[in-house]
Design a protein around this nucleic acid. Structure first.
Length: 491
RNA sequence: GUCCCCAUCGUCUAGCCCGGCCUAGGACACAGGCCUUUCACGCCUGCGACAGGGGUUCGAAUCCCCUUGGGGACGCCA
């Protein structure tokens, strides 16, 4: 199996899904997963793009066994294959100029008729060819489609089933440019046979190329690989996903930056166009490898349900759901490395979280994670857990702290009572709050909500008593006292 | 325009190959409720689809045909 991206941009969702399916199938079959960079389009290929694609795959955890190989490394072999076809009369030189063909194509388009190269150079005699060559005329090499010998090209696609195409509907396509460099359709087939690729798993946009490639394999006397075309992923207007129109949501690096767990993304991507027999949706790597099957890939395109401008659902809601579920339920020791790295880049990390305060750290992560969706939430919404320098949500301050000016007295008094607790545990803290409320003839909720905002800056969050207990007496006392300054008359 | 492919809730899908178990199942989203000091989680309920038309059949989401709709390919791009 292989993943063969062309390095003309970034790693996008579709590419990642293709890579994932290849990776899954390779793992399942115990095969070799080769990464091959198809860089024959020298004008558009860049080193940065190669780096970005590699980085994206590494982050996703789609490790390859071989490569990255570069298609340009095999240029000579591709050329050799073309010359072999030329010698055997399975290809021929065409002297028609590009300009000429382009105008013909445009005319056909204007007339709304199909344009297909008429194969006029096919009929050239050897002398004519030699004459043209001697004149220094430039030429391309075209594949001679064997319309008589093989009128119907059929193959069995692992996803789409039997696909047929009449040879008369295939033009004599170019395999070597006028500068004698090979084209993708040739290079790709030659490389796949060189790499002994058993399964070509690629997007359905490659479906139309497949009969041509099978022709090449046949002409070269090579057994074609098994093809499996996967449906495309479109946007909610059924248009192709692209960075230019959809922006960063289609790039893998964006999900990394926004705090996605790589496996959560893979899990989501796997289910876009594929479903397991038993309806299971969450899979570990091993489970997915086990369950994955080419024959269960759908045949219809799927829609990536992204709605621009929705700040809550900034990407497909189901993708967020997958990530949130992983954040909430995965084993803590697997989650922590991600949280650690997120905290490190925000200056919130301390070594003691791995040593003396490890228990505390795990407990607080476990307490807050059920309401977080992405890893970045731990350093934004969860900042108050690890730093005294956290933001106060103005709405929360107004709603919970300023709703009763008496809180300016209550909070310090509460702080004082809490400070005197010998055991700062959940029950004792709750007792303090409840009895204080009773004493002052106020609702406990008033104090609870005010305290929550005081210690966290927010109006939402974990159960207050648990939160206070885990934050610790010193912090709580300090924050309750400090918050008095925020209590002002509501306007 | 030509060729190829596809068609089940708003979205991802199960069911289709091998017709009856389908009053079409699940998940996300959305709405309501329960739980609750808040927000989540969890639980419950609701909303919501076989593109249309013809056949075949005792019986069709499932098989066949047509229509419509959608996508892809038609480069000296990959």
């Amino acid at each position: 199996m292989r993943f063969a991206p062309s390095p003309t941009g970034y790693l996008h969702l579709g590419g990642a899904r293709t890579a994932l399916y290849n990776w899954l199938w390779a793992k399942k079959c115990g095969g070799v997963f080769i990464l091959r960079v198809e860089d024959t389009d020298l004008e558009r290929s860049t080193q940065d793009s190669v780096e970005e694609i590699l980085e994206g795959l590494r982050w996703l955890g789609l490790d390859w066994d071989e490569g990255p190989n570069f298609q340009t490394q095999n240029l000579d072999k591709h050329k050799e294959a073309a010359f072999k076809l030329l010698r055997e009369g399975q290809a021929y030189r065409c002297f028609c100029s590009k300009e000429n063909l382009d105008t013909q194509r445009k005319e056909a388009e204007a007339k709304k008729t199909a344009f297909m190269y008429d194969g006029r150079c096919r009929k050239l005699t050897q002398e004519e060819v030699q004459h043209n060559l001697d004149q220094g005329m430039s030429s391309v090499v075209r594949f001679k489609v064997p319309r008589d010998e093989c009128p119907l090209i059929a193959f069995e696609d692992s996803v789409y089933g039997r696909i047929e195409k009449r040879a008369k509907d295939i033009e004599d396509f170019v395999i070597l440019r006028s500068d004698q460099t090979p084209l993708y359709i040739l290079s790709n087939a030659v490389d796949d046979s060189l790499d002994r690729i058993s399964h070509v798993i690629r997007g359905a946009d490659g479906l139309a190329n497949t009969p041509k490639q099978i022709l090449i394999y046949n002409a070269l006397g090579i057994k074609p690989p098994t093809f499996a075309h996967m449906p495309l992923t479109l946007d909610n207007k059924k248009a192709k996903l692209s960075k230019r129109v959809h922006g960063e949501v289609v790039t893998i690096s964006y999900y990394r930056r926004r705090g996605f767990l790589p496996w959560a993304l893979c899990n989501f991507l796997a289910l876009l166009g594929w479903a397991s027999q038993d309806g299971k949706e969450f899979f570990s790597r091993e489970e997915l490898i086990e369950a994955f099957d080419l024959s269960r890939i759908n045949r219809h395109n799927s829609i990536f349900n992204y709605v621009p401008g929705d700040s809550k659902n900034w990407t497909d809601p189901k993708a967020i759901h997958f990530n949130a579920t992983y954040v909430r339920t995965m084993p803590l020791d697997e989650l922590v490395p991600y949280v650690k790295s997120e905290m490190e880049s925000n200056g919130l990390w301390s070594q003691v979280y791995e040593t003396s305060q490890k228990e505390w750290f795990l407990a607080i992560i476990d307490l807050i994670r059920s309401r977080y969706h992405v890893i970045t939430d731990f350093s934004s919404k969860g900042r108050f857990c690890f730093s005294n320098n956290y933001e106060f949500d103005p709405k929360a301050v107004k709603k919970n702290l300023c709703q009763d000016l008496k809180l300016a007295e209550y909070l310090p008094e509460l702080a004082q009572e809490l400070a005197m607790l010998p055991n700062f545990d959940i029950e004792k803290i709750e007792d303090v709050f409840r009895s204080f409320a009773e004493k002052q003839q106020v609702k406990a909720g008033l104090l609870i909500n005010a305290a929550r905002t005081a210690v966290s800056g927010s109006s939402v969050g974990p159960g207050l008593f648990e939160l206070l207990a885990i934050l610790g007496k010193d912090r709580v006392v300090q924050r309750l006292n400090d918050s008095v300054g925020l209590i002002t008359v509501n306007d």
